[in-house]
Design a binder for these strands. Structure first.
Lengths: 201, 201
DNA sequence: ACAGAATTATACCGATCGGTAAAATTCAAC
DNA sequence: GTTGAATTTTACCGATCGGTATAATTCTGT
């Protein structure tokens, strides 16, 4: 059938660049000028490939969940590793990502969700952010509902899976805020240690 | 000497309204139209009274520290109350403010500091936010450097004042993020309880 | 009543916002 | 080589951004 000029950029590379812009500046703070410059394309190409700003944001958010949030979860289910070590490895993997100097500091989802709560970001984008937050909470929840060591811990410490997950997720939102304003990985490791102590580990 | 037309609005009331707008939308997200509408004045009055958007933001931030952040600190130094109760009362006072439906959810400083870290908010405003964060951390720090019960707790739990304050401050940044996206006070009370357990209380 | 000071309301400024129309390019198919 | 599909570039759209000039009001002092 048809030929036509070839795309001069890689869609996934461009999407990753867009993710970094939203990660650094949030939804409203990321202008189309910021995005097109970082992605190395111009506006008509952006609109032809990704739709509009909101659609691009949704795809960037999904990319973040799959390529950032997802990567930490392996530590939660590693066979033959004690529960405490699995949780510590998971939490430190997240916090290390929050502190990583090669990417924007903090957490993409935490930043944009706070922005979304105030106002001003479109409905579908907000839903995607909500699902992104639920992704992490569900991964933690599975540990405390399935793992026998975790269940034993809950009964010993008179806490529930919901409470424990809520505490850990809140703590990670806290470390995200602190990493964003410049705290080091070493400083946040002691925060994680105190957090583990808070759930009896 | 000279007369002239009288101000038709109360400066402090207008400043409080501006604080609520920044609290809800952040610095960049709060447009002059948002601000003037909530403050009940028009742009020339705003500029004559407060300077410009950045100056207004700085004054709103200082107003927040004095009239919101400051009010919680009394619980930290209440005579005749055990350390754990003082900390719990303080933390719950903060979290209750974060959940209060009569004001924007979450923490003004936490929201704007995350925005500032990404970019785009002026230097003086950023400095004021930094000082606002330090205000709360210093209030907590005084407890763990001065209070004899707190010092005893630190030596027993092999932790330092810096680490403990960093943990509690991080936790409050976490509860701020969670309150902002809708968690209830009851849900966050269990987070506070886990946090207190994390420092050995 | 009048003059001058201060605050109001209205209208406007250039810059940037998200988004797009039109024309110039680059390719595949024939 | 020519046609037609797809992507690029350039230029532009109305709306809104922070900020201000101008003029109409409202007050005090004489």
């Amino acid at each position: 059938m048809a030929g036509g000029r070839k795309l001069e950029f890689d869609k996934e590379t461009a999407l990753e660049a867009a993710m970094h812009v939203f990660w650094k500046k949030g939804y409203s703070g990321a202008s189309l000028a910021d995005l097109t410059e970082s992605m190395g394309i111009n506006k008509p190409s952006l609109y032809a490939t990704f739709g509009n700003k909101e659609a691009l944001f949704i795809q960037a958010t999904e990319y973040y969940v799959e390529h950032v949030a997802r990567t930490h979860c392996q530590y939660l289910v590693q066979e033959g590793i004690p529960l405490r070590d699995r949780l510590k490895n998971y939490l430190m993997s997240v916090v290390a990502s929050q502190c990583d100097s090669s990417k924007p500091k903090g957490c993409y989802v935490a930043l944009c969700a706070s922005e979304a709560a105030g106002d001003s970001i479109p409905d579908h984008a907000q839903e995607t952010l909500f699902k992104a937050g639920a992704y992490t909470q569900n991964a933690l929840m599975r540990v405390f509902t399935d793992d026998t060591d975790a269940i034993r811990l809950l009964s010993k410490s008179c806490s529930s899976a919901e409470e424990t997950v809520r505490f850990l997720f809140t703590l990670l939102n806290g470390t995200a805020a602190m990493a964003r304003v410049g705290l080091s990985l070493a400083e946040l490791e002691s925060v994680v240690e105190h957090g583990l102590r808070g759930i009896g580990l």
